[in-house]
């Protein structure tokens, strides 16, 4: 079977262009979802198969020289730094929670007629979702995961790993979902500086795929933000749970003539090696900025020293 003979090609090309525009319009109207769902469902096994090959290729390309060993060592150290950073977040949050509970205890003692019930701050339903593909262009940053509406995934759900925030679900099929990464320039997340509770907006930075830095913008000039400060989700707006780690401030830019200051953030998640993610199907929306500002000094900067062997 041959495809279009030469004499019919101008007509065929016109038809193809019209079809592509029609697909774009139907997609925007939401009419194309069943077809996309079916097609992506059909080729998803191919993605999984190719993943095995790509993981092998990744190992192969990384295994030629000592650079690989150094790379692994850097990764190990980075993981340790991440763990320490996360531990310091936990300790800091426990301190804050402790202070808050003491306040609440005092409140209860001074109001004995109140019936107060403790509640979990964040209810997580940790479905592990495997990353089966990434956006095909250099322009945008999406991943495809193998969990969809059949598993209870919905558009807008936050996505994270134990290391920190990854992004949010933007479209869902039966057994797949597309996730906009927080490193995409079009992404924005309400955030808070852990030590001072200064608020800002974390956005992705335009650049190559190795540049996974983020930037926190719109931090008021009067608020303190320093290199090494940990940046967490604030929960403001209800799109993300509060207290998910985003990253660590690596550079602060402050000009007297500006209303706001901004800082570069190195995310705790390694976006170049995402394999499994957690989709938060349910959480209690709350705003960390409504909580009392911590009184102690800022959180300790994570040390670069490896943790002692057990």
């Amino acid at each position: 079977m041959m495809y279009a003979p030469n004499r019919n090609r101008p007509v065929l090309v016109s038809v193809l262009v019209v079809l592509a525009i029609l697909a774009l319009i139907l997609h925007q109207l939401g009419q194309l979802q069943p077809l996309e769902d079916l097609a992506l469902g059909l080729i998803q096994p191919l993605f999984r198969g190719a993943l095995g090959v790509s993981e092998g290729a990744q190992d192969l390309t990384g295994g030629f020289a000592d650079v690989n060993a150094l790379h692994n060592r850097i990764n190990q150290l980075q993981n340790q730094v991440n763990e320490l950073a996360i531990n310091s977040v936990r300790v800091r949050e426990l301190e804050n929670e402790n202070a808050l509970l003491r306040q609440q205890l005092g409140y209860k003692q001074s109001n004995p007629d109140f019936d107060l019930v403790g509640a979990a701050v964040l209810e997580r339903n940790p479905d592990m979702a495997r990353v089966v593909g990434q956006d095909p262009t250099n322009l945008t940053r999406y991943i495809i995961v193998d969990q969809g509406s059949a598993e209870g995934i919905q558009t807008g759900m936050p996505v994270a790993t134990p290391q920190g925030l990854v992004g949010r679900v933007t479209s869902v099929g039966t057994h797949w979902a597309k996730v906009l990464l927080i490193t995409d320039p079009s992404s924005s997340v309400n955030a808070v500086v852990q030590s001072t509770r200064a608020t800002g907006l974390v956005q992705g930075v335009t650049g190559n795929l190795a540049t996974n830095d983020l930037v926190i913008k719109y931090v008021p000039q009067g608020e303190a933000i320093k290199v090494g400060d940990l940046i967490l989700t604030s929960g403001l707006g209800g799109s993300f749970p509060k207290r998910i780690v985003i990253g660590e401030a690596t550079e602060v830019r402050k000009h007297d003539i500006d209303l706001f200051q901004e800082a570069t953030i190195r995310p705790t998640v390694d976006f170049t090696r995402l394999e499994f993610v957690l989709i938060l199907k349910k959480f209690t929306p709350s705003d960390i900025t409504q909580e009392p500002t911590p009184t102690a000094t800022r959180a300790p900067t994570p040390t670069r020293t490896p943790a002692p062997a057990p």
Binding site: I21, L32, L40, K178
Partner: peptide, 24 residues
């Protein structure tokens, strides 16, 4: 152009951008 349309449709399935952009 025909190659572009076909491979574009496949790319659209894996892209987070609105479906049809790659094909177009």
């Amino acid at each position: 152009a025909q190659w572009g349309f076909i491979v574009g449709l496949f790319l659209d399935l894996g892209s987070g951008l609105p479906f049809g952009i790659q094909a177009l």
